[in-house]
Amino acid sequence: MGTHSGASRTHPVVVGVSPGQPAHVVLQAARFAAQFQTELVCAHVNPGRFSTSESPDGSMLTAPIDPDFADEREVAFDTRLENSLSEILADSGVSWRPLVIAGDVATALGHLADTVDAAMIVVGTHERSFGGGIQEFFNRSIAVNLAHSQLRPVVVIPARAPGGDAAHTAPTVPPAPAASA
């Protein structure tokens, strides 16, 4: 993980991360963290699990909603996503940490922000396409739900980077491979 000497651990910036997300969403969140001289918390929400207990740093013990389909790999932060975040944030100069949380995405991100007393929550949108239209609908709902339920700023970063530079719109990690039949 990256470090920034003398970085304060107070009021971190929380950014929601997921496979396939544009890299510039995380980079913009890192810029905010650098400006606030604070930590960046890269939170991935697993909606198929729920929290059974949590720590003051926002980390959780979780259980699957449906124990018949439990997969213990869901408990740990995705290694490919973490490696991709490491590459993206390598030159950012900010201290950051990955965190897996559970539950409804908007509720979980809002609760995490409350738990760590975040300066803000950063979320991104997805590219527009037929499938992206459905994702966009749900992402807009996440941003709207956060905006209506939070007392802290919610920053929504568009899917396309300013100028539409393809290098800045590369996903943080490729989507998971499809299971073979």
Rank of each mutant, 00 (worst) to 15 (best):
F137L: 06
V154L: 10
E82A: 12
S86I: 07
G133S: 08
T115N: 08
F77Q: 00
D104K: 10
V173Q: 11
R9K: 08
V105K: 05
G20Q: 04
V25S: 12
F36T: 04
A176R: 01
A106L: 06
M120A: 05
V13R: 01
D165H: 12
D165L: 11
G2R: 02
T52D: 09
T107A: 14
L109M: 05
L61H: 14
S59M: 06
V123F: 00
E82H: 14
R31A: 06
D165F: 15
N46A: 07
L109A: 13
T10P: 01
T172H: 09
F77D: 04
A90H: 01
G163Y: 02
A118I: 04
D117Q: 02
G132F: 00
V13M: 13
S8F: 13
P171Y: 01
A167E: 06
S92F: 01
Q150M: 11
P12D: 07
N46F: 01
P12N: 06
A119D: 10
E72G: 14
A23F: 12
P171H: 10
S141C: 02
F50G: 04
S8E: 08
V154N: 05
I88E: 07
A181Y: 03
P177A: 08
V154H: 07
V13N: 06
A70N: 12
A176C: 03
S55P: 05
F32N: 00
A30C: 07
T169R: 15
A70S: 04
D91G: 08
F77L: 05
A170P: 03
T10D: 06
A30D: 07
G110H: 08
A147S: 14
F50N: 12
A119N: 13
T169S: 14
G93Y: 10
G20V: 00
T169G: 12
T3D: 10
A167K: 14
A106P: 14
S95P: 03
P19M: 05
N145Q: 10
I65M: 08
R49D: 13
A7P: 00
E74L: 13
Q37G: 14
G110C: 09
G103R: 00
F36C: 02
R49T: 10
F77H: 12
M120V: 04
G110I: 01
Q21P: 13
L81E: 02
T52L: 09
S149C: 07
V100G: 14
